[in-house]
Every structure is written in C-alpha cells, then in structure tokens.
Write a protein that binds this DNA or RNA. Structure first.
Lengths: 104, 104
DNA sequence: GAATCACATAAGCCTATGCTTATGTATTCT
DNA sequence: AGAATACATAAGCATAGGCTTATGTGATTC
C-alpha cells in the first residue's frame, strides 16, 4: 500500500463516491451499485483499486463480499497531510497538538 | 478550486515532489527544476495544475514567478479527511477534538 | 532596441485509465 | 447435479494525462 496508490485511487470521483458510501456503513458490491448507474464490472474494478490502495477492505460472506472502509488508508493521508502542518490554515491549527503522535 | 482538482493534482508523483519541495520554502520555477530532471514546459504545466487546484499560489517578481504552498488546498484535504473521522485509527484519535472547528 | 532570460502555451505523441462486453469462478438454492 | 446469484477477470476501445518540441510573452540587461 503506497501513498501513490492512495492518491491515484482518490483521483477518480466515482471512487470517492464509493468510498463515501462505504463510510456510511459497510456493504456488499451489489448494494453499493444501488442508485449509482455503474456496471457490475466497473464497480468491481473500482473496489479493487480502492482495496489495493488500502482505503477499503473486504470480507467474504457466503457469495457476497462485504466491503468497508480501511482506516489504514486514511492514516496514510493523515500522515501526508501532517508533513505540511506548517502551512495549515489557522482554522486547523489545533491539529498541531496531536501531530506529535502521528509521526512515523 | 474543487476537491476533484486537488486529488487529481496529487495523483501524480512528480507533482507531489514539487509540492513537497515548495513546502520547504517558496521558490521560482527554475529553482524548482534543480536536481529534478524535468523539462521547463513540464514544470510549468505541473505548476499550473497545482495552482488551479489551490495547492500552490504564485507571485510574479520581475521576470521570475515565485511559487509557494497555498494553505487553502490543504484545508480542503483536511476537510475531506474530516468527513471520515469515524474511521480514523486510534493513533490519530486526538484529531477528533479539533474537528468541531473544521466543519464547514 | 536587440538580445537574453524566465516562464507560459500550443500541438502532437504515447501511455494510462475507466468503461464496455464477454466470460470465469465461487457459493447457494432447489 | 444443475440453475441461479454475486462477484472477478479478460480483452478491447476511447478518452485523459503527462511528456516532448516548438513558439509565444513579458521582463531585464547590455
């Protein structure tokens, strides 16, 4: 799981939508498609990209595969953001406090 | 400046390198190229993408153009990350405290 | 004011990427 | 066992994205 894969995964708006949907609660690939106008293979491919980036993880349940947000990916983004804390605007200045714990 | 432009800008490793270099201190486009094996037009194009994404801002100084990190872009990422605070791993749990201030 | 410098833009090429249709692979149901 | 369901993978296509070479533009220097 690399920084590069994460940002490339999030560069696609459809994938960010999928991720956002999963953040509201884990679900299987079919449920994810509901109301999304996306083909089954396209969804499968997007989930694969998200999974390889560490943003999402899967768990087989019978013939369904349940997907959920993987905190590991979010941690990497937080770390990336942390590198630039010197430039954070004042509104998130408080973040500085916790950054000590975030350093690799 | 949109969320989409930000993530797409950061999806390219060269652009993340440029951004990281700028985070160490503002400088002009030529200085940015030093030790980077990148053509002048390529650098100019990357800077344009970063600027349109709100990650970088420019200031003309004579015939040089000085670039520096734009905190606005970072704020957007922080906001995006904030949406998923429920999934942040324990190590950045402290972030929750400040999130009240980050909400739009 | 002509040459030079710093940078931006244009046009074209090549690869990456997201989609489609078709097919493969588990798992469940009858 | 056979059909159906849920999903993954393969192959092909069309567009997007990053690079290159060439040229344009604004500022400085001689």
């Amino acid at each position: 799981m690399m920084e590069n894969e994460i940002f490339r995964a999030l560069a696609d708006p459809t994938r960010r939508s999928i991720f956002e949907k999963l953040a509201a609660g884990g679900m299987n690939a079919s449920s994810l498609r509901d109301g999304m106008e996306i083909s089954q293979p396209a969804m499968s491919q997007h989930l694969s990209v998200l999974r390889k980036a560490g943003l999402v993880r899967e768990e087989r349940q019978g013939r369904f595969v349940n997907y959920e947000v993987d905190p590991d990916g979010l941690l990497l983004i937080a770390r990336w953001l942390g590198k630039y804390r010197a430039y954070w605007p004042a509104r998130i200045d408080a973040l500085k406090i916790l950054l000590k714990d975030m350093e690799p």
